[in-house]
Design a protein around this nucleic acid. Structure first.
Lengths: 372, 372
DNA sequence: TTGTAGGCGTTATCAA
DNA sequence: TTGATAACGCCTACAA
């Protein structure tokens, strides 16, 4: 840093412009070591609890208590200790703590896909609850691959987190056993199995599919179609859709299987394929919003009017779905809230309380917009 | 699990349907403990290196070496040890290792916004390089907040990661010092400051802005406008845009400041505001694709033809930008590749090699589509 | 309320 | 190439 030696304030426009591309000059250019954290006392921050203990004139265990169970330390001592900790910038070594206590502050969170807005929201919600309590989220991506899921679950044995959360449920029996064997809180989400490994905040994907069929029936569509995966949650949504359609007397004119969903293009293609079948479909239920937005865009590209020429219904409550004219009708949950609930339950279990109810359901809602 | 006791195979449709909503039954229902990982030898996996040492008839340190520096252990012993480790499912305790060796296997990655496709791609790319080498990414979100950034950087002192990566650069001097004081590899990205803290894989946002102006000039637009933030990277892109516009003789008819960008709606609003000014703008450069897609949608909603009535140019190479008719022209980088390069450099530094060049530039490209 | 003693599981160091 | 010894920093168990 050359022009500016200011600290403790947000950067101004000048700071920002300082970033202007220039010859790379790798390092600092002589700015005096000043009041950076840990240097307040004039030296590097202490790395061991004994140094704090010495400064405070108490034994190490008292410092330890002052940090973890302040109520167990006399007011005066506690204040003095915490003041010294604050001033010196001392930070507990989490490895030593975890080694001795057997308790880590890391919670592993696995998402099927980091690109998914809803999964990220759920993880964020979970982090909002856990981080203020001193836990750190470690995020991994399973990429909808059973092989990768298995590898990551194996790696948990090494990582030794305090708990694990998934944006999904674990289907492979061997993985379920491996998770149970960890002996830590395990949170599954995004479905409603009857036998979760440990805890669950979920919803019934079958109900979601049924809701889709009921919505179509209510709007007067008769010939309907499904686009989506036939495995995992897609299969469940399809099952519910079929049941709902049968109950309402709808005619399922087509079920289009899309195995890999990586972009809207997959939805575009699927709709084009569906239309090429000349099945005279009035309404399409897409198993997720990425497919649905692709289908919606394709329909408009072909000059079709929504919902008159074709109605489209998605799943997932994705943001983009709201913005694309005429607006995508979509079924979904409040993902951030799901994450918060999951975080709160995990927290309870880590603290040793068994939560009153290890299984919770979140509400599925349908947001009606112009596409149906 | 009731119907199915299968393991070691991907789930079939039947397994999936088993997940059908039902009465919540919290736990397992008597499936015999079997060959789950760690149980292959008939008992729980060993948790200490001495147990492996005993089984192999060697001392603990030899097992430790066989795992970390196999070349230093005699062939026969090494094979025997690794076979036992494999068979029993033993996993090294990372806390003990980190405590004794002072080396963690955790790399902290901070993104400004987890919802950003490009940032996630960069983190994914980084993980692709680091995870096979045994490192784990710990992901945090700074939410474009200097306060949160500061808090998270403080928490690094406790976390003691092996390295830190940011999808951005650190502007606040105090934070820069705190990071330097950690004494670990620090990676900054997404800009091109002349004095990175430690290492950088970046690009010049000023060049990006200039590229935008040059593109407009090349397509024959004269009256142009800017929509975006006036802090951080937005300010840099604006600076470059101004320079490019001046050099090419363009007329910047408006500069619209948008401070919080959370959804496309911000872009919609900004364009509406811009149009209300009756500035007869021909082309708009939006500092990011979220704003640009919002602007594009708003323009179409108003019945404007792109690019004839108005041209729109974004920044970020976002996926969605490709799909929205008529396709958004956008400037950007290969984010996954940036992440991979960053990961490789971090790896080199963690292994103690100073990489030949601590600063690398990635290429900015313009993808031309129908919106300009 | 505070302190003493000792060990969590691993690896650095030194010695053979 | 292998091993003995000790220490990393903290917290549990127990005692005062």
């Amino acid at each position: 840093m050359s022009e500016s030696s200011a600290a403790k304030r947000p950067p101004t426009i000048d700071d920002v412009l300082r970033l202007r591309a220039a010859e790379p000059v790798p390092s600092a250019d002589g700015d005096a070591a000043g009041d950076a954290t840990g240097d307040a006392a004039g030296g590097p921050a202490p790395t061991r609890i004994v140094e704090i203990a010495r400064l405070a004139g108490v034994s190490p265990i008292t410092v330890s208590r002052a940090l973890r169970q302040p109520e167990k330390v006399a007011e005066a001592k506690r204040r003095k200790i915490l003041e010294i900790v604050e001033r010196t910038g001392y930070a507990t070594n989490p490895h030593a703590r975890a080694l001795r206590s057997g308790q880590s502050n890391i919670v592993a969170a696995f998402v099927s896909n980091l690109q998914s807005q809803q999964f990220c929201l759920a993880v964020q919600g979970c982090g909002e609850v856990l981080e203020p309590q001193g836990y750190q989220l470690m995020i991994g991506q399973t990429s909808y691959s059973y092989a990768k899921e298995t590898t990551m679950i194996q790696s948990l044995r090494e990582m030794r987190p305090a708990a694990v959360m998934f944006t999904g449920v674990i289907e492979i029996e061997e993985n379920r056993r491996a998770l149970r064997a960890l002996g830590i809180p395990i949170m599954e989400t995004w479905a409603y199995p009857r036998d979760p490994i440990d805890m669950l905040v979920g919803f019934s994907n079958i109900d979601g599919g049924r809701l889709a069929a009921e919505h179509f029936a209510g709007r007067g569509y008769r010939r309907v179609a499904y686009i989506g995966r036939r495995s995992g949650r897609g299969a469940l949504r399809l099952t519910g859709f079929r049941e709902g359609a049968r109950a309402a007397g709808l005619d399922i004119a087509a079920e289009l299987s899309v195995d890999r969903v990586t972009s809207m293009v997959d939805g575009r293609r699927a709709l084009a394929e569906l239309l090429s079948r000349k099945a005279a479909v009035e309404a399409v239920f897409c198993a997720n919003d990425l497919l649905a937005t692709g289908a919606l865009l394709e329909a408009r590209r072909l000059g079709m009017r929504l919902p008159d020429d074709i109605a489209i219904l998605g799943f997932g409550h994705n943001d983009v779905a709201e913005e694309l004219p005429p607006g995508l009708t979509t079924i979904g949950i409040d993902s951030r809230d799901l994450g918060r609930q999951a975080g709160a339950m995990i927290l309870q279990r880590m603290r040793g309380d068994m939560p009153p109810e290890p299984i919770r359901a979140v509400e599925l809602t349908l947001t009606h917009r112009g596409s149906s």
